[in-house]
Amino acid sequence: MVKTKIVIDYSKCGNATGGIDPRQCGKCLQVCDPAVFIRHMAFNVKEDNPYDPQYWQITPVWLSLCTHCGKCVKACPQKAITVSF
């Protein structure tokens, strides 16, 4: 089974890991027709509070529905996304 791999460079996008806050951008969410990405609070940024609402990141969740259109790669201002097999 050929599987799509989508990698986000969290040093570029994700404000707990040195990147931008994806709540200020969200371009990938907007351009992806099958809605592959989810924007969510990051996990365990502070151990005592796994739900710290300050820290957000993007995760490509519905990988099997990606059509390899490449729109997210082009739209990402941080050049944080790669799509491959």
């Binding site: 989810i38 969510h40 609070m41 490509p60 519905w62």
Partner: peptide, 16 residues
Amino acid sequence: EQVYIRKIMGVSSIGL
């Protein structure tokens, strides 16, 4: 928002 990211019994929705 974490519901699809979280591992449930070792499996998350990523690549479901």
